[in-house]
Write a protein that binds this DNA or RNA. Structure first.
Lengths: 105, 105
DNA sequence: ACATCTCGTAAGCAATCGATTACGGTAAGT
DNA sequence: ACTTACCGTAATCGATTGCTTACGAGATGT
């Protein structure tokens, strides 16, 4: 499975995106995150593992706690994918408009 | 369910993204799409319904055929969401860097 | 009118997913 | 040393998902 595939399906789940958005405002530990969310701590732990495998977050140990933060590189990769997609779409629209012009004009 | 939720989970599926990418190079009918894909035509039809519900494609009848094309608005919405997210992340990183600066002297 | 091509939808099934509880292992405090 | 706090992982379960086949409806051509 490609990294882009992992990233997109990681962002598809609502609670996982909730976890991710919490991290957008700064690094946080697992229990800390779990307290503000409507699911159990193990659930949050599993979501974080998925986000990590997707390259969207990184983690580091700090005593007994484990701090997670967003990995900007992962976010950049998704943006780049979307941008390439956007360019291709615009090209197709432009080509189509020109074809219509020749057809009707 | 919000539109953004629908869009992200729509893009999460690999074959659905394959359908979507084919449409990026121009409008196409259902059967046309299905012939180039590793799944049955009904499967493609279902994927298109999901993409349509997510606001990522539009369709119009052309005789017996049904032409699907990408909806730029849907794509823009996803990009906007990602961009807002990106901004928040950078802000947090900046704030964190400043805090570290004060802490370490 | 009839046959053919187009497509959406229903039914059914195997697989994946997100959640919970239960457990074990490491770090910190007394 | 013992207790407490923090966390990941295994086991399990219900719900969702993506696919196929079967069917029916509308448009096209003879």
């Amino acid at each position: 499975m490609t990294d882009m595939q992992r990233a997109l399906s990681a962002l598809a789940d609502p609670t996982r995106r909730l976890v991710f958005e919490r991290l957008a405002s700064g690094p946080q530990a697992v229990g800390e995150l779990a307290r503000g969310l409507p699911v159990s701590r193990p659930a949050v732990s599993q979501h974080l593992a998925v986000l990590k495998a997707a390259g969207l977050v990184t983690d580091r140990a700090e005593g007994a706690r484990r701090i997670y933060r967003i990995d900007p590189a992962g976010l950049t990769a998704v943006r780049a994918w979307l941008d390439r997609f956007w360019d291709r779409t615009l090209e197709a629209f432009k080509a189509e408009a020109e074809a219509d012009g020749r057809e009707n004009g």
